[in-house]
Amino acid sequence: MRATYFLQRLSQLLIVIFCVTFGCSLLLQLIPVSPAEILLPVGSPEERALLTKEIGLDRGPIGYYVKWLSEFVRGDFGDIYYSGGREAVSSRLVVAFPRSLWLMLYTQIVALAAAIALGVWSAYRVGRRADKVISNVLFVFSSIPGFAIALVLVLIIGVRLQWLPTLDYQPYSAGVWEHFKHMIMPVLSLSVGLIASYTRLLRADMIATLREDYITMAASKGLSDRRILWRHAFRPSSVTLFTSAALNMGGLIGGAIVIETIFATYGVGFEVFAAISGRQYIALQSLVGLISIFYVVFNVIVDFAVGFVDPRTRDRRVNK
């Protein structure tokens, strides 16, 4: 039962990955100019022909895709081309990927921690002043785009107060504080919007759970409010929250383009942007492929995690 479900999900997700990457490779065929011409602006026709052959563009859409895929699964994500040479996408990802990963992790941790505290609290105080204040403040913040928050943070905290550096990324090896110093502002700008949406999700589910009979039962047995909230109500209410958080992972890794540009964090999102503006379509295809794999993998993880947290969902999903 579990195994078949697993296989079924896996095949669905593989189809998604296939469609995303194949779609990308079709985009390459749609460009009105020959890709070799784009990659080698001042090259002779012979050089271009050689490159076309090397990339596999002479094999037609399907032949090209097969060649790309066979290299992709072996970890060869293609090259970025410039006039004098080329650079492997993988060698750039080695640098960019950890940056995005940390950024995404910290953002999720901050957003979830804040959202759980605020969500549980406002569900507990539903309709009271605390609930209203939290809801309204978060509502306003969720409507201000993250980049606007980032720009203002740079001006106030970076330039005026000089508390935090405004640019660049530092790895752990440069010192823990150095590392975090460079992460605070990007993480804040990314998480403000998430905190609002996560809090809303958790609050709504908590309110529903708190109305269930077993909670009334527990209360009548004289259990403390704190115990009821955290032990009995929070776990079943957090499913939507964690599902939605997991689904955001892929997007945070590849989609934090604007924030990465503003703070010069230069993670995967910036790589995607650079590939697009530099018209490095082969690199773009590999990057989008990787991001979609991330999305899919987290999808699977959340599926099973949710099943673990709340066995009812698993059965419901299987029977769907």
Binding site: C19, V20, I31, G251, G254, I257, V258
Partner: peptide, 26 residues
């Protein structure tokens, strides 16, 4: 599946890629 395919690519990445390809002139 089609919905999932499109959702698997972050909003901005998708829009950027489409704009880049569609706005090219010969």
């Amino acid at each position: 599946t089609a919905f999932n395919v499109v959702l698997a690519v972050p909003n901005l990445v998708l829009a950027l890629a489409l704009v880049a390809v569609l706005a090219t002139n010969v």
